[in-house]
Amino acid sequence: MSEKSIISPENLVYEKTGVMTDKVLHYCPGCGHGTAHRILAEAIDELGIQGDTIGVAPVGCSVLAYYYFDVDMQEAAHGRAPAVATGIKRVMPEKYVFTYQGDGDLAAIGTAETIHACNRGENILVVFINNGIYGMTGGQMAPTTLPGMKSSTSPFGRDVSTMGNPLKITELVAQLPGTYFVTRQSVHVPANVRKAKRAIKKALEYQKLNRGTCFVEIVSNCPYGWKMTPVESNKWMEENMFPFYPLGDIKVPEK
């Protein structure tokens, strides 16, 4: 069989999902945000809920998320995405509502909104991208920065005696009775991308059950903020981020 004949519509196994727009992503080369956007869009596509989904965009690197998802989107003030999503879900309970937030948005300025939305058990999906740094503003230290990790505001490494300890917000919200499904995933290798996509798909399906907040953390890289190439940053993430932020389900629904 010649190679030309392989490229035909009946042999298609993978193409960009229609739930993502054709706009070129503004993210840096190798950034996990692009992959996270894509798997969320694919999950929406596979469940056939494009017309019934409403997303809430955060402030941070992913502030322009509304350009890339071909679903109804709402921009929230910094950190307030879970509060905005609460309002949307309560007015339109039949819709699927998700927020997409980075660690500066969700775990710093928006900690109150995040914890109270999860504690109230709002029936929304929170997608949390954790790269341990404020990427958009120039790689400053975030609450999720690892001990000893260098950033532009902790150039000698994070000293926990003066700068405090990193916040494991995913473990924290898993303690709350309002959360239904809490998991931590990553998107740097094919196997983990597949697992993360399954987790997001499951979380969207759980929204029909009305049982509480679903919280999916994605540990991601920040090649620019960490001053590494994308491939190096993925390796660094495996060696340093995963021991502190172990991957896997933290709270699964009882059978």
């Binding site: 069989m1 392989i6 009946e10 042999n11 993978y14 692009g34 992959t35 290798v189």
Partner: peptide
Amino acid sequence: TGCANCAIVCPDAVITVYREK
């Protein structure tokens, strides 16, 4: 072999994959 691993990790959805039946 059309395994689609490259397309699945691509952050910018650059790659379209075909595989013979």
